[in-house]
Design a protein around this nucleic acid. Structure first.
Lengths: 155, 155
DNA sequence: GTCGGCATACTCGGATATCGGGTGTCCGAGTCTTTAAGG
DNA sequence: CCTTAAAGACTCGGACACCCGATATCCGAGTATGCCGAC
């Protein structure tokens, strides 16, 4: 159960796009900032486009740009864009299978095990949804030499 | 990013072991309750033994039994026993790589992106640690016909 | 000088290989039970 | 009848294949750009 590294790539790239000022930036340039594979980063950015977080501009001088400001993008938006909206814990309803399923009929109420895991996962999603990229960016700006290096690398 | 199905198997099996009353039960019998693969369930139960949640009794009439009562076993204990204690979000520190790494020296403070993801994951872990299997079992007992079927299947 | 057309280069977008971890299975080591014989 | 020893069967424990999804890569479709020629 490890999160895809595409999430980390997407988060940093979204923050970098905010620092450029709004113009479209090609994935090759975005990848060079952190030494990533441009082709694989492209795959992740396409997922962000499908999720509505980015807009893509085709043709020369094209690239990707933010679809909306950082304070309207939460961590949950990015995670769901890359990982999908499927649940981490997938209940296979094994309580209804096997010998116990032959003895008792399938219960109608939801599985308590599943409910407990869903409660924990909801806490995680709520914590993700409660943090915007703007807040993360504010933390980054407390070290101007870092953000300055990103702007230099993208210029 | 999908949780291993072994977690579901382990949770239900731990609850079933509690319903038997304390005697050791073989994995073949435990697997038959929910129609699981006994060999693969064995793999998961061995992980629970290594984590100290179960004790194994070798030899004929042997099997597995709970190492401590359900109210001292949290959901986090089971998840960490099966999935390991590694973080879901693994920060590769890409902020220090590539062109930006050549411009600015590596920062000493932790990555804000990583910190934000850790905060969310801590909320998840805290929600898992705040729920014991005894509470889940109490929910199960509200449907006596289900727990009765399990006890019949294990007798 | 200005307009229109065209070749070009650059971009995104999806289709295609490769690799690692979860999934599933099997067989050997060890121990308790049972059974039988002997005292 | 009690003790004892050995055979047997059942259990755990770890080592061995398989498969799906994440990872990584490549090539084609499409468009803005820049250039060239005509007017």
């Amino acid at each position: 159960m490890r999160m895809s590294k595409g999430v980390e790539w997407a988060l940093h790239t979204l923050l970098n796009l905010h620092m450029t000022g709004g113009g479209p930036v090609g994935n090759a340039q975005l990848a060079a900032v952190h030494g990533l594979s441009s082709t694989y980063l492209n795959k992740q950015l396409q997922a962000l486009v499908k999720a509505g977080l980015l807009t893509s501009v085709p043709g020369a001088r094209g690239g990707f740009q933010l679809a909306r400001p950082l304070d309207r993008i939460t961590l949950l938006d990015v995670v769901e864009a890359i990982e999908g909206d499927a649940r981490i814990f997938h209940c296979a309803e094994i309580r209804c299978c096997g010998r116990v399923g032959e003895i008792a009929p399938a219960p109608t109420e939801p599985c308590p095990v599943k409910m407990a895991m869903v409660r924990a996962e909801d806490a995680w999603r709520q914590a993700l949804a409660g943090q915007t990229l703007a807040e993360v960016h504010a933390e980054l700006e407390r070290r101007p030499e870092v953000t300055g290096a990103v702007r230099t690398a993208l210029s």
